[in-house]
């Protein structure tokens, strides 16, 4: 197999990478780019721990070939905060104690962000429905759902 060159931006930075056609975006991010905030939880699209944004859409990076993001904008959990200024979703996760072991947190935050981008004031049911593919074994989801709703409310107030 031969490597191919892909060009895309990661967290706003233009990158040109040599990847194999079967390299998964998850592994490229973690191994080549050392962006380890994106997590491996199952590798087959069943847990949501690997969620990133590709051109604004929440995407399971364990199912996405790296070559397929050529020309795209990829945002990972590391790219959400602006310096010390956390994203309101991250802020709300901290305020609402939505982080326990934290292994699901990056994926959850990325999913939450994507929902609020589309629907700034979701109902509880909408949040739960949107998050159904993202598993958490620690929190019982209550605090996560709360955090996303609070982030939406706060954004509207400000």
């Amino acid at each position: 197999m031969k490597r191919q060159t892909v060009r895309f931006t990661i967290n706003g930075e233009a990158r040109e990478l040599a990847v194999y056609p079967n390299d998964l975006l998850l592994n490229v991010l973690r191994d080549q780019e050392s962006l380890t905030g994106t997590k491996y939880g199952c590798g087959i699209g069943e847990c949501g721990a690997c969620t990133v944004q590709v051109d604004g859409a929440p995407t399971l990076s364990c199912l996405k070939l790296a070559v397929s993001v050529d020309g795209c904008k990829v945002v990972t959990i590391e790219g959400l905060a602006k310096g010390n200024q956390l994203d309101p979703v991250q802020e709300a996760f901290l305020d609402n104690s939505a982080v326990q072991c934290g292994f699901c947190t990056p994926g959850m935050v990325m999913m939450g962000r994507a929902l609020l981008d589309e629907k700034p004031r979701p109902t509880e049911q909408e949040v739960r429905d949107h998050m159904r593919g993202s598993l958490c074994r620690c929190t019982g989801y209550a605090s996560i759902v709360r955090a996303i709703m609070v982030a939406g409310e706060k954004a509207e107030l400000s």
């Binding site: 380890t36 994106t38 997590k39 959400l80 956390l86 991250q90 104690s97 982080v99």
Partner: peptide
């Protein structure tokens, strides 16, 4: 707020696999 929460929320926490 737990002292370990922020690193986890911004993706900078290093787990054993990282």
């Amino acid at each position: 707020e737990r002292i370990d929460a922020k690193g986890k929320a911004v993706g900078s926490t290093r787990y054993a696999g990282d």
